[in-house]
Structure formats: C-alpha cells, structure tokens
Amino acid sequence: MRMHNADETCGIAGAALVLGDWWNVLVLREVARGHVRFDALAAEIGLSRKVLTERLGRLVAQGVLRRSLYQRRPVRYEYVLTDAGTALLPLLVAMQDWGDRWVLGDGALTASAGEDGAEHARVRGLVGTRLPDALVSPGAAASVVFTYPGTGVDWGSPPIPGASGCALEHRLFVQAWPSFLRSGVALRGVSTQLPEEQAEFARAEGIPYPLVSDAGHEVAAALRLPTFRGAGRLRHKRLILVADGEGTVRHTLFPVVDIPQAVEESLRLATA
C-alpha cells in the first residue's frame, strides 16, 4: 500500500499502514494474549491459513513481530512481539477502551461496569486462563490479583463513578495480609501507575505485598482487562482474580462495588 505524498511525514498515516487492516489488529491482539503459534492464532481468529500466513509475513516485514524457531522437524515458529510491537500495546488497549465506552457502551465515563455488559463478559471469560508470568507466584497455594485505578489521584469534579477507594482497598488487604500469609496465598496489586509512584505509596502505607506496574499495558492487553481514562492516563477498573497454584484463574470478582466484601470474598475463595 502506498501513501499519498501528503502523508509521507504523517505518523498517523504510517501507523495506519500497520494497524489499518482488521486482521492485522486481531493478530496483534492474540499475540499479546499469548497465542503465539500458528495453529493457536488460526483457531482464535478463525482465519484461513493462507490469509493468516500473509498477515504474519506482513507484520514480520513491518518489524512488529519476529519469528522464533521452536521446532526443527518439521520447522515451526512462534510469532512474538518486537520492541516496536510491544510499543503498540497501549494503542490496542486504548482502542479497546474506546470500543467498550462508545461502541459497546453508552458513552458514560465510569470506573465500574454493568453486570450484563461486554466488559463483565470478558472478565468472566478469564476463568481457565493462565495469568501472565509477572503475576504468578511460584510455590504459592493460590494467588489473588487485584487491579485498581490508582492511589493518591485527584479524580476531579464530578468524580468518576467507581474510581475512588483505592487507599481503602489496600488498607483492607493489608489488614487481611496475615490470613493470606498463613494460608500460603500470594497477593499482588496491579495498576497503570509508574513503579516509582507505587513504591512511594508502598513505603507510606507499609504495603507488604508486591505492586506491579502495568504502565506499558502488557497485563491489560494479555487479559483484555477493562480500563477507563482518568486523570490523564488509561487506568484499570477495579477487579479481583483468584488463581490456583499454577496461576490459572478460577474465580473473578467484577465489578467490585462493595470493597470490604470483595476483599473478604477473595480470601475465602483463595483458601477454599
């Protein structure tokens, strides 16, 4: 595809060469989710082998995917994101956020979700999915992973529904931490805040469990987590995932409306 001369210096036009194709976007979405082998990609997308081969070759040529040999006889490759491909993840998550709000939703800005909406269905569909490696705790009997919009944030006026309460949530998890520890249940908090922002909060509040920064949106893209835009950045909506010792999601709590009840329920599910 050739660009019009007027677009040769336009970054939007250049990006459209990569993302302007429906199948290219879906291929990148599935690679981000961990479906990196040809047959898995074909099954998830429902694409013919001929068209998928063409799209993969194009994305490799454009420098957003690279082929990695995993089998010699017969020759088989995995398709993994390059640095350029990883840099596209925030754009994919922003596309999902826009679609959730304006195509699948009513346009309202909220940090929560209805129980009959697309976001709720996606989160519920995570049961049986393995968590990304960054969220798995080897040796733990189970894991509880909770995402939250951000601590110490001024949400403006009027406040975004469902965005507040992050400090309360952490304090409740800190109070319950001894019970998690006795039960061998790992606990992790995830937000799109920068690591230094999380570290400052952890020091101030005495947080005993790890906080994972998803500032690059790798976790959001891998799990297709619901997000919203608030205080200048894309942020996770509040949810809780309960996984077994292998890191496979067994229970989901979303939307989280009653924070104290959700903290208690996550401990109960993890130790059941």
Results as ranks from 00 to 15, higher is better:
residue 111 A to Q: 02
residue 134 A to V: 05
residue 220 A to C: 10
residue 238 R to Y: 08
residue 219 V to P: 08
residue 266 S to Y: 07
residue 172 L to N: 09
residue 155 W to F: 09
residue 88 L to D: 03
residue 119 E to K: 06
residue 232 G to F: 09
residue 131 L to N: 05
residue 204 A to D: 08
residue 17 L to M: 13
residue 38 F to V: 08
residue 220 A to V: 09
residue 233 R to Q: 08
residue 258 D to E: 02
residue 195 P to K: 06
residue 150 G to S: 00
residue 13 A to K: 11
residue 123 V to G: 02
residue 80 V to Q: 09
residue 179 S to M: 14
residue 212 V to I: 14
residue 174 V to S: 03
residue 92 L to W: 01
residue 25 V to A: 07
residue 207 I to Q: 03
residue 144 V to L: 00
residue 156 G to A: 11
residue 171 R to P: 00
residue 86 T to F: 15
residue 97 D to A: 06
residue 213 S to I: 04
residue 138 P to A: 03
residue 36 V to Q: 03
residue 218 E to L: 10
residue 231 A to Y: 11
residue 146 F to Y: 10
residue 229 R to A: 09
residue 107 G to S: 11
residue 87 A to D: 12
residue 151 T to D: 06
residue 12 I to R: 15
residue 105 G to K: 09
residue 16 A to H: 14
residue 71 Q to Y: 08
residue 116 D to A: 14
residue 95 M to C: 14
residue 118 A to L: 12
residue 163 A to N: 07
residue 18 V to I: 14
residue 256 V to W: 04
residue 83 D to S: 00
residue 129 T to A: 11
residue 97 D to T: 02
residue 116 D to P: 12
residue 104 L to S: 12
residue 88 L to Y: 02
residue 48 S to I: 13
residue 7 D to I: 07
residue 99 G to M: 15
residue 202 A to I: 07
residue 172 L to T: 04
residue 254 F to S: 04
residue 246 E to H: 10
residue 236 H to A: 06
residue 57 G to F: 06
residue 265 E to Q: 11
residue 144 V to F: 06
residue 97 D to Q: 14
residue 70 Y to S: 01
residue 6 A to R: 11
residue 204 A to F: 05
residue 269 L to A: 06
residue 185 V to E: 04
residue 173 F to W: 14
residue 31 V to A: 01
residue 144 V to S: 02
residue 222 A to S: 07
residue 264 E to F: 12
residue 184 G to N: 04
residue 34 G to Y: 06
residue 138 P to Q: 07
residue 211 L to F: 05
residue 99 G to I: 15
residue 132 P to G: 03
residue 58 R to Q: 10
residue 131 L to G: 02
residue 101 R to G: 00
residue 201 F to R: 00
residue 268 R to V: 01
residue 11 G to C: 07
residue 233 R to K: 12
residue 120 H to R: 10
residue 198 Q to S: 05
residue 122 R to F: 11
residue 184 G to P: 13
residue 200 E to F: 14
residue 105 G to E: 07
residue 106 D to S: 10
residue 1 M to E: 15
residue 10 C to A: 02
residue 203 R to I: 03
residue 87 A to E: 11
residue 143 S to Q: 13
residue 173 F to L: 14
residue 54 E to S: 09
residue 154 D to A: 12
residue 217 H to K: 15
residue 84 A to R: 07
residue 5 N to K: 15
residue 146 F to K: 06
residue 17 L to Y: 14
residue 98 W to I: 05
residue 107 G to R: 10
residue 257 V to Q: 08
residue 255 P to K: 05
residue 25 V to T: 06
residue 22 W to S: 07
residue 58 R to N: 04
residue 38 F to K: 02
residue 179 S to R: 15
residue 262 A to G: 01
